[in-house]
Design a protein around this nucleic acid. Structure first.
Length: 285
DNA sequence: GACAGTGTTTACTC
DNA sequence: TGAGTAAACACTGT
């Protein structure tokens, strides 16, 4: 599910719940999640999370003692859920881990903290991972990411350069994490709609004014989504067990066959760049 | 029951 | 090097 706004919401909630808590034990329920690293548990038990950062959709955890990082990627269906020592999800509202049947058959890793709180890492499809890396590995992985909305390197000067010598489609370019980091299928479709460009156009046909619109809306759509807790369709994704409500703001994604809010034309859906792609053929050129 | 589709990324082609 | 496709997997919806 998650794109950058959803991962950022997860990061913030994890930060508020698990920092400075000592890891008492770890249950590894599926070897693939930790990339079959036999030292995973041994490396982290007794240690403490001290920082959680993010680049694009990649979470990066830092520890008090372990000299290295744990990278966490949710891919399509990964989720973290936190339960406090009373079993309350997110540490104190009406939901409990019984409401989520935790742990369940898709729970892959469980962190037990001193004081009896728990962090569950669930993933249905087994694409997600929690991986230990050295500081050098972390640096080189981070260096591979493109410019990211909401950070200082997301400037018009840098954005304009991503179109140089490229002939791929707008959608394929914006989905490429090495070029722009954080955008996924939902927000690319939404940004193209707001910028009034068709996502399958090749980037060499874009006018400067259109590139400027994309620059603006790629960032705006993600910032608005973070403010609303992200986009959630049918799975709860955040450690607090709460749903984001940015799905109420989606103008084209998942709206195939329904009328465009601006012109009333029916929203189209095609497959492009290997992904479901939504657009209004009247509003977007 | 079979099969297409799913929000990500990467390895593999050409 | 860039671009397109399939595959990793387990579900849901038709």
């Amino acid at each position: 599910m998650p794109e950058m706004p959803e991962v950022e919401v997860v990061r913030r909630q994890l930060e508020s719940h698990i920092l400075h808590k000592e890891i008492e034990s770890i249950e590894l329920l599926h070897p693939k999640i930790t990339r079959k690293n036999p030292e995973f548990r041994e490396a982290l038990v007794g240690d403490t999370f001290i920082a959680i950062t993010r680049i694009g959709k990649l979470l990066t955890f830092q520890f008090k003692h372990y000299h290295g990082f744990m990278l966490g990627h949710l891919k399509m269906t990964g989720q973290f859920i936190y339960a406090d020592n009373q079993g309350q999800i997110g540490g104190g509202h009406s939901l409990t881990k019984a409401d989520f049947n935790l742990p369940h058959k898709h729970t892959r890793v469980i962190f037990h903290f001193k004081g009896n709180s728990t962090l569950y890492f669930n993933d249905m499809r087994l694409f997600a991972y929690l991986q230990l890396v050295t500081p050098d590995e972390k640096e080189s992985i981070w260096a591979g990411y493109g410019i990211e909305p909401g950070t200082e390197n997301y400037t018009w000067e840098n954005f304009e350069k991503i179109f140089d010598r490229r002939k791929t489609s707008i959608k394929a370019l914006l989905l490429n994490q090495k070029v722009v980091s954080g955008l996924g299928n939902i927000y690319v479709d939404e940004a193209c709609y707001r910028a009034k460009v068709l996502p399958f156009r090749t980037v060499d046909t874009l006018k400067k004014s259109e590139k400027k619109e994309l620059f603006k809306h790629c960032s705006e759509v993600m910032m608005e989504s973070i403010a609303r807790g992200g986009t959630t369709f049918y799975q709860v994704i955040s450690p607090d067990g709460k749903k984001g409500n940015f799905s109420d703001e989606l103008e084209v994604f998942d709206r195939a066959g329904q009328p465009c809010y601006k012109c009333g034309n029916i929203i189209s859906k095609i497959k492009h760049a290997g992904r479901g792609t939504h657009f209004c053929s009247t509003c977007q050129k």
